[in-house]
Structure formats: C-alpha cells, structure tokens
Amino acid sequence: MKKSSIRNKRRITVFDSVNNTVLLLIAVVCIYPFLYILFIACSDGTFLTRGQVDFFPKGFNIESFKYVLTNPKFDIFTGMKNSFIYTLFGTLIAVVFTYITAYALSRPRLKQRYVIMTLFVITWVFEAGIIPQYIVYSKLGFIDNIWVMIVPGAINTQFLLITKAFLDGLPAELEEAAFIDGGTDFQTLTKVFLPISKPILATIGLFNAVSIWNQYLVPQMFLKSDNLKTIQQILKSVVITSGNSGTVFTNVMRNGFTLNQNNMKAAAIFIAMTPIACIYPFVQKYFKKGILIGSVKG
C-alpha cells in the first residue's frame, strides 16, 4: 500500500502531461459529435443551409425541439415509449431465462447438458440467416407482435455461455450443502445461487438491455404498424431516408426562427439519444465490471 502511494506521488513529467492531454482530447472527440448535433438543433435554419454552423450554434433557439416533439408526424414519443417497454420486458425475461437455463446446464446431475449446450453452440455458430428466420417467425405469429422483441432473443448463446461459466466457477460444495439441508432446485437456486450471482445478472441484464434498445433489423423486419415502431426505426425513416414525407420537412417559421429539415433532424437525433445519455453515468461502472466477468473465461 505504502509503496504504491509513493508511485502515485511521483512528479508529473512531460510525458504525463502530453499523454493526459492527448487522451483527454480523444475523449472529447468521442463526444463532440453528440454536442455538434445539439448545436445544429439549436441553430437557425438559414445559417444551416448556407453551411455557416461549425463549432457553436448560430441564431440560438430551441424551436426545433418544440416542433419535433409536438408534431405527431415525427412520432418520437411513440418510438421512445415502445423502445422503453421492449427493453424493460425483454431484459427481464432474458435475464430470467438465461439464468435458469445456465443453472440447469451447469448441474453435473443433468446428463444431457453437453448435448444441449452443443446444440446451442451449433445454432449460434451456424447462422440460418434472415430469410428463414423471417419466414419461420412470421409463421409463429411474430409479425406486428411486440413479443418478437422480447421472446426469440431472450436466450442469447453468448450470454448463456458467460452465465454458465460463472456458475461452473462456483464451488460444488454450495449445492451439496443446500441439498443436505433438504433443499429443492428452486430453493437452491433462489437461496444459495441467486444472492451471489448479482454481478453476472447485472452484466447480462445490461448487455441485453443495450442490444434490445439499439436493435434495428429485427423491428424493421417484423414490426410494421406505426404504433409499434421503435425509436431506431423512426430515426431511420425521419433522419436517414427521410423518404417521401415532404410535408414533414418543409421549412417553417417559428417565433422568428427558420426551421428546416436539418434542425428538425438534429433535434430528433438528440432526443433519441437523451435517455441513454442520462442513464449512462449511473450504469457505466456496472457495465465495466460486467465486461470483466464476461471476459474471465474469454
């Protein structure tokens, strides 16, 4: 302890200051684009069309946010609400299913566990591709069905492997002790294993939540109704393709500021990433821990 504190007290060299500055710059570069979007959203449209907005907003106003949020054609609220629901339930179910499956597969009593695990791995490595997936899922009734965001992806083989590795790593005596006390599987699972599995649960929960929230292809293939669309789909149609919907993007004047499609798009992008930006500071430390648990076994 003492020795390391000596190390830390060492004077700051040129290398240190250069290194610190460069890395801080990298960090700023990482988030600058997000700020840039904010500046665009807050600028007056006339300056944007002329390409006069670089590092700071010009003609500052927040009309674009008001417009995008109040115009029902943008459907930002629906998208956010849907994405939130899918993420919440999807994560919940994914964590429960992955955990109980991993628990069962990590019991030496289960003789078929190698077969089952191999089957999981085979289907993971050998991809069927989106067309058969689409056809089979559609026959299972997943078209325009919100469960498509929740159920089929609940057991991700990679997360299953990580969870199973974690449970395999726990001492066998834990289970033996519980069984000697006359416990059943359910009791052992809830009383003995669950309390010490919090880190792995947090990990797979976070991984799942991020992947469900960010998914684009699955909802795009299966969720067709406007009222089921996720925020990512709405971003794609509003910002990237912007399609044939000329009515949405015609210039409007609001309180003396010109809003054109660039402001509106930027506002939509910024709103779409706000929730993640808000929770990020609170979950990032769990996330870091999570990656480590996952990486113990490679």
Partner: peptide
C-alpha cells in the same frame, strides 16, 4: 430432477422454436 427439467424447459423450447426453426427453414 423434476425441478431441474422444469427450469430447463424455456431453454429447450427456445432452442427448438427460435434456433432450430430457422435452420429448418433453410430448406427453401
């Protein structure tokens, strides 16, 4: 191991429907 198999059930169903289903679909 009754309870163990019960715990395994969602996993097996998911394996058959969502992972082997599309593999079967590849016959097209």
């Amino acid at each position: 191991n009754r309870q163990l198999y019960l715990l395994l059930l969602p996993g097996i169903i998911s394996l058959i429907l969502f992972k082997f289903g599309p593999l079967f679909g590849m016959v097209i």
